[in-house]
Amino acid sequence: MKVKLDKVTKKFGQIVALDDISFEVNKGDFVFITGKSGAGKSTVIALILAEIKPTQGEVWVNDLLLNKARSGKLLILRRQIGVIYQDFRLLANKTVKENITVALEVAGYKEGDWREKLNQVLETVSLGERSELFPSQLSGGELQRACLARALAINPKMVIADEPTGNLDPETIWQFMGLLNSVNELGVTVIMATHNFDIVNSMGRRVIRLDQGKLISDKKKGKYE
């Protein structure tokens, strides 16, 4: 899955969240979007997920222009993207297993396929024993792993992670990044918004740097500056 932002500006009232930014992410890329809080990272992610529309410019995912796409097509798009939110967005009244199952059901998987998928992703994120617990019963790291399991369960073409390491201890962070790396090696596009300079500097991946809504730099093997 590829993404293209073409001269995108996004304003919230008088506030300019993004100011004329353009970049492309090709299929299979692993891209960090970095910047301080308020730089516009989450706005970029919201635009790619079509949760908001740009004030100016165009947002493309594959050959779909998100600005003008019908809601049905946007829903289909979202089912192909695994998202790990900063605020988790897990369903509070469902267990970890049920949260993953809802994602599978929404993505169109048949009930017969759920069990295999569930076992697979729960093993991948090491949450097998905690799968019957509710989000309120999990630690921050476990919640993030549950989100990752939900994102991976649907065999996404792209994984988007918005500040996913905020609640994790260092060991878990690297386990998490290892998982993302593995997913990327399978050809899944990964876009991760973060202000964790350790991760960015260690991974040697493409880095798009934002500051106050402007695109400052876009480097193939970038560092957190």
């Binding site: 998202v83 509070a92 994602a103 929404v106």
Partner: peptide
Amino acid sequence: REEINALRSLGATSFY
């Protein structure tokens, strides 16, 4: 509301 927004972000249809 939060739950519904979460479902929407997963790509759930309005009918779902």
